[in-house]
Design a binder for these strands. Structure first.
Lengths: 243, 243
DNA sequence: GCGGGGTCCATTGTCAGGCAATTAGGATCC
DNA sequence: GGATCCTAATTGCCTGACAATGGACCCCGC
């Protein structure tokens, strides 16, 4: 499946076998796997080999291992962060090795978030609207240090209002990578004021159920963000080449 | 970082330590890590613990381990499949546990591929056009068994023509999950004929450098695909509930 | 000089066995 | 009945060993 090394190493074989059972739904989230000793016997390998295979699966949250009497390895719940964690690692890896530029990240974000704003405006429930407005208010009253987090939170809420989990899964890692690699509290206060105003306009369009306006305002907002990010990025790059 | 269990287990500590060094760029792709024995000494743990940590990292392709004299663990190259492999696992996991519906997958695909077609039309190089036309021709001459693969290939080439690696990273896993979970050669020959025709029209729009038309035709094509996928999905679901 | 083949050895892969740490659930005592 | 202790199952981690692998190096024939 996919492109795993899939060599003839014992721990890879075991991991692949268990993984395929999980992805095929043969063992469901919450199910308990046999204890390590039994797995070892079943596959005819030692317990260390089994453990290496389990670590492989655990790093993707396919299994979760608990200690103690009622412990063991369980098929993990496909929770959200179980999915976007690895995605974040992957994209961060690419960005860290300069295989992906900040422009690509920003472009992908635009591609995802503009239609997301439209969808959110079309489908928002009263609860969505309330949550989004609450978040806006919180942003206004939060201090500078947590501004970024509450701003990101606003965007995440819009993604959630679309009702499509995948959009959140794919966009969150982009936020994360942008945050860790390209932004370190280097933006001025005036920038955050502008952000807050634009957020407000977007929220209004979503509340009004106006997809067209929501998309347009989101696009305008993302252009604002792009300019700032790109500027910081250019600055940092020229600094590092001068070194 | 992110949301790893990050308990106080030794192998997690080691894995987190090495991972952060890689993501921060302190050790670069291709660099060799110390041999397992040295790592064990460095962290004050046994070799098995080090190996479990390495398996954790290897499953995300952050490291690659080779055997033999010049072997050892190396920081992995951030190659494409190193990234979309884990993404595929994650999305497949969600879909397998019914946390994501086929409709969500298809909607996300539409969101990504329609703008991608527009971008491709706007930016395509002569080589892109040539490759895409070649792929089209190959599809026409391939037999039924490989039709799906060559069709997917067409879509991937368009994603590549956008020049934004992220688009390919996010869309490929969707193809993969749709393939493994919702389609098993259940589509009739007439379906594939229609697909080929629509591909042709899309390719023409991209060749002509007409973003608007490329987007529209891609959308029309995805609607065709959606209808078929949804129909098969409904069929399979009603079968399985009847069981 | 140089190409081919064979040997050496650093390194990972796997195994066996054991003890410590953890934890749920039952037994016991008040 | 409730708090406490005990027990047993299970993973976490360690030690030490040997097999398998595969690149580096040497030697030999030419």
């Amino acid at each position: 499946m996919s492109s795993t090394p899939s060599g003839h190493l014992a721990y890879e074989h075991v991991a692949a076998s268990i993984r395929s059972q999980i992805l095929a739904g043969a063992i469901r989230p919450g199910d308990r796997l046999p204890v390590e000793a039994d797995l070892a016997a079943e596959y005819g390998v030692s317990r260390s080999t089994i453990r290496e295979a389990l670590r492989t699966l655990a790093s993707q949250r396919l299994v979760v291992t608990l200690r103690g009497t009622a412990g063991g390895s369980f098929v993990g719940q496909p929770e959200h962060d179980a999915v976007y964690g690895p995605i974040e690692t992957g994209i961060g890896f690419l960005a860290g090795a300069d295989a992906i530029s900040v422009q690509e990240l920003l472009e992908a974000r635009e591609l995802l978030e503009v239609p997301a704003a439209r969808l959110a405006a079309a489908r928002r429930s009263p609860e969505d609207v309330e949550t989004i407005l609450d978040a806006l208010h919180e942003t206004r009253t939060s201090d500078l240090s947590s501004t970024y987090e509450s701003s990101r939170n606003f965007h995440v809420l819009i993604l959630q209002a679309t009702g499509n989990l995948l959009l959140e899964m794919m966009t969150r890692p982009i936020f994360s990578v942008l945050r860790t690699r390209f932004l370190r509290d280097e933006a001025p206060k005036s920038f955050w004021r502008k952000v807050a105003m634009e957020h407000f306009v977007i929220a209004e369009a979503i509340e009004a159920g106006d997809p067209k306006a929501a998309g347009e305002e989101m696009l305008r907002h993302l252009v604002t963000l792009s300019d700032t990010y790109s500027q910081i990025d250019r600055l940092r790059r020229s600094e590092s080449t001068r070194t």
